[in-house]
Design a binder for these strands. Structure first.
Length: 418
DNA sequence: TCTGGGGTCCTAGGACCC
DNA sequence: TCTGGGGTCCTAGGACCC
């Protein structure tokens, strides 16, 4: 069996842990720049606020219904996630952390367990230790565990957040219940095509011919079908070093000036280099893109990107920023309002497998310098040490409703007044 | 006026080779 | 009118996930 454990309304729940006065009240969490809704409490869902809703379009609803609005506090969510995952990893030796709020457990050799009570134990432990509510689904395959989890959550009044798909009859019943667009691994495109030919439920999909699935949905679709049929096909995936690393942001206002864009791109490059060093990788390619505002159809659009090949693999902030700026210089055009930009580092290699070059002009001092920069910034805060090109910092991210960093910054620790 | 960010995998088709 | 066959590698783009 597999278990899929998922935190309910994760970001909203994180905020609520430290604001118990908000229990039972609608909460939404907004993306960077307070742009759109990325998490909703059940109460907010009931008000009809959709996922991804632009905040400005729903401001009236927020006001009228007294919705509590939070700016995204990713430091808090990341830390809470680590706590939850750490607890759940005690329930099986085999765990795959699938996303910030989800994990799979593989339960080989747990055959004699009563899964419902095992799931209940998980809920109690996580709730008691972190305050985060979770749902647990058990099933013979990963895709079915996803489905079992949906049932656990959807019918919480009956399941109390735990559901075990213990028989084949239950599997078939669940598949007939699950609409095709709700299947994990079937997105909007495939759902539309399948629906058009009469495949309306997950069960219908499992009755399709392999040849059709292979032809139209490739090997990925076929694997999914097998997994839904109860044939164990997808397995836990080991955490691996990332193959691409990106830092991209939208701006609260359009940027037209080259200098300002340079500052942003430099900061994105520096951020990418930090992420590279964190996973002990170097990159051999730097990709830079800038985008105009696609929602402003009245304004001219220009969305260039460019890839720069480095002469040697590096994770030095100085090098990566240098090439990112060279790249930006090539694509920047005056006369456009840029809404978003980003740096992506690619073709990553492990730090230690550095390719030696006979004529390398690599500056050997960068490595120790970066070590010091990382150490200082971790001791005294992000950007305590930064590149000169980052100095002209005029921008500020809109985060009007940011909650404290209760668990990661001693200055924000919660106070209890007796 | 205001509309997120960060990933993965797969495949078709082009470039290139003999 | 006729103008081969069989590979590999790379990449852009499409699909998906949270």
């Amino acid at each position: 069996m597999y278990a899929l454990i998922d935190c309910n309304n994760f970001y909203a729940s994180c905020e609520r842990v430290f604001r118990p006065d908000l229990n039972g009240k609608p909460i939404v969490v907004l993306s960077n720049n307070d742009g759109c809704v990325i998490a909703r409490s059940n109460e907010a869902k009931e008000l009809g606020i959709p996922m991804g809703a632009p905040a400005f379009e729903y401001q009236k609803v927020f006001d009228k219904e007294k919705v509590h609005v939070f700016s995204a506090n990713f430091q808090l969510y990341g830390d809470m996630s680590n706590r939850v995952m750490s607890i759940l990893s005690d329930f099986s030796p085999d765990i795959e952390i699938y996303s910030i709020d989800e994990c799979f457990l593989k339960l080989d050799g747990f055959g004699f367990f009563d899964f419902e009570s095992y799931g209940e134990q998980m809920r109690t432990k996580v709730s008691k230790s972190t305050g985060i509510p979770i749902s647990v689904g058990f099933a013979p395959t990963k895709a079915l565990a996803k489905l079992a989890n949906r049932i656990a959550k959807k019918y919480a009044e009956h399941t109390h957040g735990v559901y075990s798909m213990s028989t084949d009859a239950l599997r078939v019943k669940a598949l007939k219940w699950l609409k095709i667009e709700g299947v994990w691994g079937i997105g909007r495109q495939h759902a539309r095509r399948l629906s058009a030919i009469g495949v309306k439920t997950a069960y219908d999909f499992t009755q399709m011919e392999d040849a059709w699935v292979q032809k139209n949905m490739a090997i990925v679709g076929l694997r999914l079908k097998r997994d839904l049929c109860g044939i164990r096909t997808l397995d836990l995936e080991e955490a691996q070093a990332k193959k691409n690393i990106a830092t991209t942001r939208s701006f609260s206002n359009n940027i037209t000036e080259y200098d300002e864009l340079c500052e942003r791109v430099t900061s994105f490059a520096v951020s990418c280099s930090e992420k590279l060093r964190k996973q002990s990788s170097c990159c051999r390619e730097v990709n830079v893109f800038i985008l105009t505002n696609r929602h402003r159809t009245d304004q001219p659009q220009y969305n260039p990107s460019i890839k720069v090949r480095l002469r040697y693999a590096t994770n030095s902030a100085i090098e990566i920023a240098k090439y990112a700026l060279l790249a930006l210089k090539k694509i920047y055009k005056r006369g456009y309002g840029y809404k978003k930009a980003g740096v992506i580092v690619q073709d990553l290699v492990p730090e230690e497998s550095e390719q030696l070059s006979m004529f390398t002009d690599r500056d050997r001092r960068h490595n120790p310098l970066m070590k010091v920069v990382d150490k200082m910034n971790s001791l005294y805060g992000t950007n305590t040490l930064r590149l000169g090109a980052q100095e002209r910092r005029k921008w500020i991210m809109r985060q009007e409703k940011l909650s404290p960093r209760y668990t990661t910054d001693i200055r924000d620790i919660i106070e209890i007044v007796l």
